[in-house]
């Protein structure tokens, strides 16, 4: 399909605009040839600066006491209730912080939520089990859980083997956790982090064991499985928002608002870009977002 031909007045203004955008771009590209700085990545730098400014500004406003609205996330509201249920039943809580390494931001999100959950668990004196797949996650998990018990004033109740390394292989890990679920029948299973093919294996076994299940992952391909087999599922960015949400601290919600602001900007860019491309004027706009 050929592009529509723009009329003359539009053409002139478009030409001027293209000139304004393309000339500096060409100059920058020439400068970039011999420069240590990646001028061709300047678009990413602009985005980083806008994003950082938005997060910092909203955090500052939150600190100053400006009320920031956060919508309800039912899955997170259910955490305390689910831990309470485990206490009443005298059964443990299982927390799986995903199966990825600590360099995955999803795992860090999972570990952050673990800290919040561990504090609630410590307050209720409910047993907690956290199987992990990587030693670095083990070290971080142990630190977080110990600190949560200390903050809850239950240092003596803390068992170092609450967080335990199970296996480095995906399905060996899954087999172990599934075996644990069927033997110990935890009242509550919480899955927060990066999950892959084991998502349904874990969630379906937990369902068979009669546990209340709360899951959260940013992997779109695993979401349907969690939705089918769990009681509550956090989708995508909700996982990253969970720690801030559970903290009830304004300073943390500032970060979320900053993120929302950038999301609005991106949505606007998508709408403008789609409109420009649809009318045949989008080439320069697409070039602004070129990834190199």
């Amino acid at each position: 399909m050929t592009k529509p031909v723009p009329n003359s007045s539009r053409f002139v203004s478009l030409g001027l605009f293209t000139l304004l955008v393309s000339v500096p771009q060409t100059l920058l590209a020439q400068v970039a040839e011999g420069s240590a700085f990646r001028v061709d990545r300047i678009n990413a730098l602009v985005l980083v600066l806008v994003f950082s400014t938005a997060v910092l500004l909203y955090t500052k406003w939150a600190k100053a006491g400006k009320p920031l609205y956060l919508r309800k996330i039912p899955g997170l509201d259910a955490v305390e209730e689910a831990v309470g249920r485990a206490t009443e039943m005298g059964r443990p809580v299982l927390f799986v912080p995903g199966i990825a390494e600590l360099d995955e931001i999803e795992t860090i999100a999972g570990i952050s939520i673990l800290g919040r959950v561990a504090k609630i668990v410590a307050q209720y004196d409910t047993p907690l089990t956290v199987p992990v797949r990587y030693p670095l996650v083990l070290a971080a998990g142990q630190e977080v859980v110990e600190q949560a018990y200390i903050e809850a004033g239950k240092r003596d109740s803390y068992d170092k083997d609450t967080v335990k390394y199970v296996a480095g292989e995906q399905f060996a890990f899954t087999a172990n956790v599934n075996g644990y679920m069927m033997r110990e029948r935890p009242a509550t299973n919480i899955y927060m982090g990066a999950f892959f093919a084991e998502s349904l294996l874990l969630a379906e076994t937990g369902n068979a064991a009669g546990s209340i299940q709360i899951a959260g992952t940013a992997r779109p391909e695993q979401l349907p499985f969690f939705i089918a087999a769990c009681d509550y599922t956090l989708m995508g960015e909700e996982l990253y928002a969970a720690s801030a949400y559970l903290s009830h601290e304004p300073i943390m919600t500032g970060g979320l608002k900053g993120q929302d602001f950038v999301k609005v900007l991106i949505v606007l860019c998508i709408i403008i870009g789609a409109a420009l491309v649809s009318f045949g004027y989008g080439e320069w706009f697409i070039n602004l977002f070129e990834a190199v």
Binding site: F51, L56, I105, I108, I113, E143, E146, A218, G236, A244
Partner: peptide
């Protein structure tokens, strides 16, 4: 994907700036 990427970036920023420290307990 876009939402999750933004969430990850926001969380990374909170960690780098020391706002988010829960992962250290």
């Amino acid at each position: 994907i876009i939402g999750a990427a933004l969430g990850a970036a926001s969380m990374s920023l909170r960690i780098i700036l020391g706002i988010e420290r829960t992962y250290m307990g």
